[in-house]
Structures are given as structure tokens and as C-alpha cells.
């Protein structure tokens, strides 16, 4: 008897509906915003074959522009990357790495290059008369990952059907997606900042250097923080030892 009472006292569905009600109070436009985000994500498929018009419209047309759609595309990319990693056919999968999977680490390492690129590129473009804002660079970079997402998705069923002899086709599809996406990231950057190709190439080199610098600083900060925390921890243990004496 008691057990059933406890169960009826706590139910997930009730909690979820409470959560929805709470969302509605604080974010009255939440549903609408989500709907428009999903609608605007679809523009990435137009960009797939019309990059020049597409990226220009994405930035300048207020009816197309959506940073949240960009975030969603990055999330989709990370999820597809994760699913691909875990569900590839046996011949193409890395068994040992699959067993050692760490979901947050895998997703962060998948996304980190794009986020770093957007940040570093914005840092340099603001020095080099680029027109784009940070949100612009971030958004177009996110939309440009779509080819990679698609090719990764195509690889999953193929990997279950291919033998080692057809491995070259498999890797070709993967590298096709990668080259396509990287090319679009470059194009998007040029279009967003209104650069010439030469200036774009120069900025690309600078951006890559900038990415390395940011990563270095981040690691430095991490280690310094570690030192500081360990310092205070040591003081704490010392104090505890003294008090216990």
C-alpha cells in the first residue's frame, strides 16, 4: 500500500507538464520561437547547392537569419557524429574506441573546432575590416557543416553493407563531406565579411593561428586554475591537520 502511494505522489508526467507550464509562463513565445527555428533550419538545404546566394541571404535577409537554427545545426552535427561513431558497421568501426566512449568529450571535441573557428575568425575580421558580426560568422559556419552531417549519415548504412574492398568508396564519401563543408565554411566567411578571395585566404591562415593561440591560452588558464585550486586545497588540509593536533 505504502509503495503505491509513494508512486502516485511522484510522477514524471506530472513533473513534465509542470515544467511545460512553467516554460509557458516565463517564455510565452517559446513554442513559436522553436517553430521558426526549425523552419529556418531548412534553408541550409538551399545553401547546399546555392552557396553564394544562400550565405548572402542567410546573413542579410531578416526572414532567413537565425542564430538559433545555427546552434541546432551544430547540435545535429554533433549528434550525427556520435551516432556514426557508435553505429558504424563492424568493418569500419573502431571497437576499442567505441568501448571507451565518453559522450560529452566526444561531442565537445566534435564541435570545438567550429566554435573556435568562429571566435578566432571574428577576432581577426574585426581587425581586417570584415563586415560580419560574431553571430554572423557563427551562424554561417554552423550552416556550412550540413554536407558533413549528410555524408556522415550516408556512411552509416553503407558501412553495414560494404566489405574491405569497397573501403575506398566509404572513405571517399567521408572526405567528400569534409572538403565540401570546409570549402563552404571558407566561402561563407568571404561572403559574410565581403572579402576578396586573396584576403579570405590570408584571414584563414590568421584564423588558424588564432585558433591555436586561443587553445594555448585556454590550456594555460586551465593549468593555472588547477594550481590555484590545489594551493587552496593544500592550505585547507594543512589547517585541518593543525586543528586536529
Amino acid at each position: 500500500m505504502e509503495k503505491t502511494e509513494k508512486k502516485s505522489g511522484f510522477s514524471f508526467s506530472a513533473l513534465f507538464s509542470d515544467f511545460l507550464a512553467w516554460l509557458k509562463v516565463f517564455f510565452p513565445k517559446f513554442g513559436v520561437a522553436t517553430k521558426t527555428t526549425f523552419k529556418r533550419m531548412g534553408f541550409a538545404f538551399y545553401i547546399l547547392f546555392h552557396p553564394f546566394d544562400g550565405f548572402f541571404d542567410l546573413k542579410n535577409d531578416p526572414k532567413r537569419r537565425s542564430v538559433s537554427a545555427g546552434v541546432m545545426w551544430l547540435v545535429v552535427y554533433a549528434v550525427v557524429d556520435l551516432v556514426r561513431f557508435q553505429s558504424l558497421g563492424y568493418l569500419f568501426a573502431d571497437r576499442g574506441a567505441q568501448l571507451d566512449l565518453n559522450v560529452p568529450v566526444r561531442m565537445i571535441t566534435a564541435l570545438l573546432p567550429f566554435i573556435l573557428w568562429a571566435v578566432a575568425n571574428w577576432c581577426f575580421s574585426s581587425l581586417m575590416d570584415g563586415d560580419g558580426k560574431l553571430s554572423d560568422v557563427f551562424m554561417v559556419t554552423a550552416f556550412a557543416t550540413l554536407p558533413m552531417t549528410i555524408c556522415n549519415l550516408i556512411q552509416i548504412p553503407l558501412s553495414h553493407f560494404f566489405t574491405a574492398a569497397e573501403a575506398s568508396i566509404f572513405t571517399f564519401i567521408g572526405s567528400l563531406g569534409m572538403v565540401w563543408a570546409y570549402l563552404y565554411i571558407f566561402l561563407a566567411m568571404i561572403i559574410v565579411h565581403q572579402y576578396s578571395v586573396a584576403k579570405g585566404l590570408g584571414t584563414t591562415v590568421l584564423t588558424i593561428v588564432g585558433m591555436a593561440v586561443i587553445a594555448f591560452v585556454a590550456i594555460l588558464v586551465f593549468f593555472l586554475l588547477q594550481q590555484v585550486t590545489s594551493f587552496f586545497m593544500e592550505i585547507g588540509t594543512e589547517v585541518i591537520f593543525r586543528l586536529n593536533e
Binding site: 568529450v105 571566435v119 577576432c123 560574431l134 585556454a218 586551465f222
Partner: peptide, 23 residues
């Protein structure tokens, strides 16, 4: 304001690294 944002981003990145660090 831009400087502040940049500093913020660097900190966020550092924190994400902390999260991503595997022992």
C-alpha cells in the same frame, strides 16, 4: 563591451576544456 565579450569567451572556452579534460 567587445573586450569584455572576448574575455568572457576565453573564460568559457577554458571552462569547456575543464569539462572536456579526461584524466
Amino acid at each position: 563591451k567587445q573586450k569584455f565579450i572576448k574575455a568572457l569567451i576565453v573564460t568559457v572556452l577554458a571552462l569547456s576544456l575543464v569539462v572536456g579534460m579526461v584524466t
